[in-house]
Design a binder for these strands. Structure first.
Length: 520
RNA sequence: GCGGGUGUAGUUCAAUGGUAGAACGAUAGCCUUCCAAGCUAUACACGAGGGUUCGAUUCCCUUCACCCGCUCCA
């Protein structure tokens, strides 16, 4: 299956079955925002619950918190977000490539300025100005060629060769950042893109009321470090875990829910003694890889990318990206960064409050260092959807082939754990028994009762929802099993497995015991 | 933000400057003893806004969304 095809099919299935809808759909949508439908909400809940349990319930060294999305603006000043979370971008007027304006290599040479262009035979002219920087030693003929390309845009002329750029003057420049280092073409005026959503606290929109929707959940954990440490009565190494929404005004949301403007993060800030950072970075990498396997993403689909020093954030001394093979490319699911004591130091300085840790053993005071595994909820959901999606050709008894679409979620992630069906709905005894079985299982797992149409249809519907088990109440349930292990025994049901479509008989009384460990 | 593409029912796809069809799916009923069977009925669409026109889903403009490339990605 072609990858673009696969994404399209996944998006269609998400809508059809109620995993994910476009936000504000009836008003034409909102770029970069998505809603989770009934199945999606349960899938997401299962994912977050499992992460939360993995971090807090199943280990002793991490405690949870739930910070507010709005925080004092001073937090974003201290963290560096307010100053650096906005990028000045500039664009090459010829190639349309975009560059960070503050990362342009300064250029020196002679600028050839054009005041316009004409193509008399075509009765066409332009009076836009355009400049090309020709470095010393380069041929000045290059300027005219590039200018032709520039004026050709939007001219509708068949060939740029017909265009005659009109040169106005030349100018010597040194260390200019106004021209594309790759081809010398003039760059557009830099425009600032602020990636934080600005908002006002209180009804009055003045500057003193400004703050931002958080662009990451991490800062709440740094800011509350002292409080949490105090109440948790933990020693280093210990961590704080948090799940919550974050907001980034992305220039260009893309790839379904992969990059959206409102998204959810699962982050741990893990505090360690100075010097132990690298060791814990490795431990966390292994820990997280095992976790992804536990939710059904095979190890060989995860790529560990070691971020080079040049590409790391300036405060990080080591970063791994865990990437997944999405249909649209290998992309980041989670970043694991050794952040040193940068964050606590910033907040200690900015707030004037001491944030040191006192080590009882060595009687020393120091700022802990931090290793941060930061995972994207929505990205992981998308990975689960991509990993689960499967089509298989099945042939029935009469030799007819058709395509079965099945979402092969790990049972612990599946939104619905078990579908419950009376074989026939016009037999009251079957219906009553099926409803009784549902009541039996309901306290332990998400169930779905369905009596409409033929049994095969109901199975297939559950396949698309990714429900791992189906239970059918049939006549053998009432009259006693015909053969097999439970021959003659009443109150057995058919248990149907999603992945293999295999069926087995099992007594109703054993269902809970059988199913519960598989979905936990 | 730039360039390219696409917008008709939940999905896949028709047709048309003058009443928008189908298949599958959905819902309800009947039937049905294990993998989307059958019969009957019902509901649901021209992304939005302007313009041209007697009349626009169709032509034009704008806009919005989605997809691809560039870019960006704490």
């Amino acid at each position: 299956m072609a990858d673009a095809d696969k994404m399209e099919k996944i998006v269609a299935l998400c809508k059809r079955r109620g995993f994910i809808f476009q936000s504000s759909e009836i008003y034409g949508g909102l770029n970069g925002a998505w809603d989770y439908g009934p199945l999606g909400a349960d899938l997401k809940r299962n994912l977050k619950d499992f992460w939360w349990k993995s971090m807090t319930q199943y280990r002793d060294d991490i405690v949870g918190m739930d910070g507010s999305i709005l925080m004092n603006r001073a937090v974003w000043r201290a963290s560096g977000h307010e100053a650096t979370f906005s990028d000045p971008l500039t664009e090459c007027l010829v190639t349309k490539k975009r560059y960070r304006a503050d990362q342009i290599d300064p250029q020196s040479g002679t600028v050839h300025w054009f005041k316009g262009a004409e193509a008399p035979e075509q009765n066409w002219k332009s009076d836009k100005t355009f400049g090309v920087l020709v470095r010393d030693g380069e041929h000045s003929e290059k300027a005219k060629k590039l200018a032709r390309e520039f004026y050709a845009q939007g001219s509708n002329l068949e060939s740029p060769k017909l265009i005659n750029p009109i040169e106005d003057r030349t100018e010597k420049v040194t260390d200019s950042v106004g021209f594309n280092p790759e081809n010398g073409a003039q760059l557009s005026e830099p425009r600032t893109f602020n990636l934080m959503f600005k908002t006002y606290v209180g009804p009055v929109e003045n500057d003193s009321a400004i703050t931002y929707l958080r662009p990451e959940t991490a800062q709440a954990m740094f800011v509350q470090f002292k409080n949490v440490l105090e109440v948790a009565r933990k020693k280093l190494p210990f961590g704080i875990a948090q799940i919550g929404k974050s907001f980034r005004n992305e220039i260009n949301p893309r790839n379904f829910i992969f990059r959206s403007r409102e998204f959810e993060q699962m982050e741990v800030e893990f505090f360690v003694k100075p010097g132990a950072g690298f060791e814990w970075l490795e431990k966390w990498k292994e820990d997280r890889l095992a976790w992804y396997e536990a939710i059904g993403i095979p190890r060989d689909k995860i790529h560990v990318k070691t971020i080079s020093e040049a590409d790391r954030a300036f405060y990080s001394q080591g970063t791994y990206d865990l990437e997944y093979e999405f249909p649209f490319g290998i992309q980041e699911l989670e970043g694991i960064a050794y952040r040193t004591d940068y964050d606590l130091k910033q907040h200690a300085e900015a707030s004037g409050k001491p944030l040191e840790y006192f080590d009882e053993e060595t009687k020393t005071k120091f700022l802990p260092h931090v290793v941060e595994p930061s995972a994207g909820v929505d990205r992981t959901i998308l990975a689960l959807l991509c990993e689960a999606y499967d089509e298989e050709v099945v042939t029935d008894d009469k030799g007819n082939s058709e395509t079965r679409v099945v979402m092969r979620f790990h049972p612990r992630m599946a939104p619905i754990k078990v579908g419950i069906f009376p074989l026939l709905k016009n037999k009251p005894e079957l219906v009553a028994k099926a409803k009784a079985v549902q009541e039996l299982l309901r306290p332990y797992m998400t169930t779905f009762y369905d009596e409409a149409g033929a049994i095969g249809r109901r199975y297939r519907r559950m396949d698309e929802a990714g429900t791992p088990y189906g239970i059918t109440i049939d006549f053998e349930t009432l009259e006693g099993a015909k053969d097999g292990e439970f021959a003659g025994q009443k109150d057995t049901v058919t248990l149907r497995h999603r992945d293999t479509m295999k069926q087995e008989r099992i007594p109703i009384e054993k269902l809970t015991h059988y199913l519960t460990p598989k979905i936990r």
